[in-house]
């Protein structure tokens, strides 16, 4: 499979900003991966994401150089109508992306905007509701939903457009840990069932490290590390880039000197305990 997302030498400066929000950025993401994008606040993550779904440069002006391609076609040269169908964007606050008064109308929002005929729309809305297992919420009003449910409704609205690439911008920041891990499990299932590529911005790495194929770390608008989660988190300098290394990984790193312990990938607590069973520490 080819690369669904290609970023080449991308630099962007907002028109009223003193310096580049993203500079000289390169990235290639193969189709079907779960990619985690991490880095401190203000490192340019949000800007980068907005160049992928076209809000930059189609909505925000500024100095743009380099190229971003989704599924082979340039974002700059596409219109928002096409981009909305190839890239889904789940924003941080689900409240501000639910527009209609019932869940099913909201899931249909994007399809209505595209002028999809009613019968096809009905089928795609039902499919999206089914994927997220929220069919029973179809007639609810937004203010009758919990935060976790709102998140799912917003994601259903995104998936109804059948995007190949879905961006999740800090999807768990408002959720409690259990609801957050349910969301992560959902992402894994959707990738398996639909083959969708996910780019996830997340501060809570402990949630995602077990399922991510790739971890990209940004700082000051630049990419400072990229690789498998294990390679990046075992790297010497990652802690200095404002990325919190999960506790288990820190212990795994401590024990990594022992031969055979966690040399290939990141381990969960029980895997790590099993790996050192019978050894001297």
């Amino acid at each position: 499979m080819g690369d669904i997302l290609e970023v080449e030498g991308l630099s962007f400066k907002y028109s009223d900003a003193p310096r580049n929000a993203v500079s000289g950025f390169n990235l290639a993401i193969p189709e079907g991966e779960i990619v985690v994008l991490a880095g401190p606040s203000g490192c340019g993550k949000s800007t980068l994401l907005r160049t992928v779904n076209g809000l930059i440069p189609h909505m925000y002006g500024g100095e743009y150089s380099g190229d971003v391609r989704v599924g082979g076609s340039s974002v700059k040269g596409s219109n928002m109508r096409d981009l909305a169908q190839s890239v889904g964007f789940l924003f941080q606050n689900p409240e501000n992306q639910i527009f209609m008064f019932t869940v099913e109308r909201d899931v249909a929002f994007g399809l209505e905007n595209l002028g999809v005929p009613r019968n096809e729309m009905r089928a795609r809305v039902d499919e999206a509701l089914g994927l997220l297992r929220i069919g029973d919420l179809a007639q609810r009003a937004p203010h009758e939903l919990s935060d976790g449910q709102k998140q799912r409704v917003a994601l259903a609205g995104v998936l109804a457009m059948r995007p190949k690439l879905v961006i999740l911008d800090e999807p768990t920041s408002l959720l409690d840990p259990r609801t957050a891990s349910e969301l992560v499990a959902l992402v894994v299932r959707l990738r398996k069932e639909l083959g969708t590529t996910f780019v996830v911005v997340e501060h809570r790495l402990d949630l995602l490290m077990g399922v991510a194929d790739r971890l990209v770390v940004m700082e000051g608008g630049k990419k400072v590390a990229e690789g498998t989660p294990k390679d990046v988190l075992f790297g010497e300098e990652v802690g200095t880039h404002g990325v919190a290394v999960p506790a288990v990984t820190r212990v795994q790193k401590m024990l990594a000197g022992e031969e055979g312990v966690g040399v290939e990938r990141l381990l969960t607590p029980s895997e790590l305990a099993a790996a050192v069973e019978g050894r001297e520490i």
Binding site: D176, P177, R178, S181, D206, P246, A247, V248, V251, P269, L272, A273
Partner: peptide, 11 residues
């Protein structure tokens, strides 16, 4: 109570 356990405690 649907509260997570700290990773280190779990470990």
């Amino acid at each position: 109570a649907r509260v997570a356990q700290p990773q280190l405690v779990e470990l």
